[in-house]
Design a protein around this nucleic acid. Structure first.
Lengths: 333, 333
DNA sequence: CACATAAGAAGAAACGTTTCTTTCATTGCG
DNA sequence: CGCAATGAAAGAAACGTTTCTTCTTATGTG
């Protein structure tokens, strides 16, 4: 911890009339120095406001203890749209990292910008990587170790932690969907592993319960795009919509309302990720709950282990709970 | 940008059968080397996956380009309560910092933890410092330059940017309060400069408009604490309540509702800081609007200027807008 | 008194770069 | 043919530490 200073150990040595070795020893308590010398050197150092250079220390020790936190853009776009989830991850990861004496550095999801940085990273946490994520490729090339929250669907996964989206969504369907119901899974934005997994869970449930499953995609979260997608989804008697993400679920709800459809009477609605707004919607929307806090803690700890060279690290999933709300009440089997 | 590697320039030199100087020159494009040599060295470096050590570079250049972002705890407690405001500040500050090629490091508001970090900070941004903020004192001692968003009310301010809370609140009163109305200003949590300023603005308005102004404080945001504070405030015919912060305003509203008081008919309610929930409350609550985005940008830029040794830097305020909502509609003068 | 030992302090290497200076060999011109 | 100029590459210093090694001087013991 040092700012831009200029008092070096040499200055102290000169001022105290001793060698740098003596200064170093005096300050660190090592070596065999008579107490008077030690005290005098300390006093001089104090007077000169001397602080050892963190960089020089880093050079010697071979590292500064910095870990990056990089969040891939969410559906829609910016970081700010997912505030709650994002903030939970950032705060928890940071706390874990700081508690271990390392420093969390906020990284943009841009190889260009990251590449321009001249800081030595001991490792990085990548949140919700994209398919063929360029940042991951960059880290591979630069030999920066990383752990991801979620996986890059287009790459042999290294070390990751994730919610168990597959089981989560199929459990939610189990409780809210009639066997044989016609389902549609609505996705938005770039492909992420949690969507892939949730989709797989939905597919599995559908195939084992005699249900059909349509999959639809739109690029952004503009209401008109969502309207069109919902329009398409409803063609052919779909009775249960599954939105990939909370914000999409809200748009879908608006869409249905605009079309004069009642939820859940005419169509049921589910979200594959939860959020505070879902509870407050009317009707409140059923969803699968993520665990950003636990995910961040686990991921940060795994990364720290990885950095420290611990062997036998394993990727892991966290089981998800379901929040059953009026948009898709529990079925009475 | 480098991970933990081991291939050094010496390895490359040895492998290529040249000196380190030659490697350095070949890679940087400097010096006068024949193209074949340059190419060969580059090839070897490539093969060995050589990356220059960021730390060594930092040692030479005298800095790594890292700036800390430190957020003082808000009323209530954790970072997570103020997500929107906090996230806006962090993202904007980070973007500005990254755009200049520096790296934003997330710092906890704890001298203990910060002190344990062994990273060289070129500067820091401190958001909403507390009175006699220990982190600021720490930075002073360590000679780390900083810029604050808001000021430490207990200290000669260095360089800061802030919303113009004083003018903001008095303008809001001007439009929503009857001259002579009995006001109460409700505060919560640690003393921060925006409260001091808002309070001053309210005092000023009150004293120039024949109004009385009670000031009340409570420690936390528990509903019972707030209830008691509101109780005390209302004794003596107060007709206009001003809450220091959006979350407090919501609690106060709940309090009033529980007491069977109607807003704005029985009591008017104002908030000295805005938030999305204020709009959605019933009735929606009038407030002064902050500018976390602009604040963060300005603060980050000021810090960067400070780091680069630019002279004549000045603290600055941003004018605030008022959002007039049903909890305290505009008066008809 | 001489020699071994220990204390006290300084020297030097190493961490990984870049850059300034030096060395050596080759070429060209008078 | 000799010397200057140039090209190519190596050497060395510097950035700020720590730590291992060496040196000097004083103390103690036989």
């Amino acid at each position: 911890m040092t700012g831009k200073r200029k008092t070096t150990i040499k200055d102290v040595a000169a001022a105290a009339g001793v060698s740098v070795t003596t200064v170093s020893d005096a300050l660190s308590g090592k070596g065999r120095l008579p107490e008077p010398t030690r005290l005098k050197v300390k006093a001089v150092a104090e007077t000169l406001n001397y602080r050892p250079s963190a960089i020089a220390l880093g050079l010697r020790e071979g590292g500064l203890g910095m870990v990056g936190i990089c969040i891939a853009p969410a559906a829609g776009n910016a970081i700010l749209t997912d505030v709650g989830y994002w903030a939970a991850i950032v705060t928890h990861a940071s706390q874990t990292i700081l508690a271990q004496g390392l420093a969390p550095v906020l990284l943009p999801h841009s190889v260009d910008l990251i590449g321009r940085l001249t800081i030595p990273l001991d490792g990085a946490l990548v949140v919700d990587p994209l398919e063929y994520d360029p940042v991951l490729a960059f880290f591979d090339e630069k030999k920066v170790r990383y752990v991801t929250i979620g996986r890059d669907p287009g790459r042999e996964a290294a070390l990751w932690v994730d919610d168990d989206n597959r089981t989560g969504i199929s459990r939610l369907l189990e409780r809210t969907a009639q066997p044989g119901a016609a389902l549609a899974f609505l996705t938005v934005g770039p492909k992420k592993s949690y969507v892939v997994d949730a989709l797989e869970g939905a597919r599995h449930w559908a195939s084992t319960h005699g249900s059909s499953l349509k999959v639809l995609h739109c690029e952004g979260l503009e209401q008109e795009q969502v309207d069109r997608m919902v329009e398409r989804a409803l063609r052919g008697g779909v009775t249960m919509l599954i939105a990939q993400v909370d914000r999409l679920a809200l748009r879908v709800l608006a869409s249905l309302e605009a079309k004069g459809l009642r939820v859940p009477d005419d169509v049921r609605l589910l979200s594959a990720s939860d959020g505070p707004e879902l509870e407050r919607a009317s009707p409140p929307i059923s969803a699968v709950r993520q665990h950003p806090d636990a995910l961040a803690d686990m991921a940060a700890n795994a990364l720290l282990d990885l950095i420290r060279g611990k062997a036998d690290l394993k990727s892991a999933t966290i089981p998800m709970e379901t929040a059953i709300r009026p948009s898709a009440p529990a079925i009475t089997a």
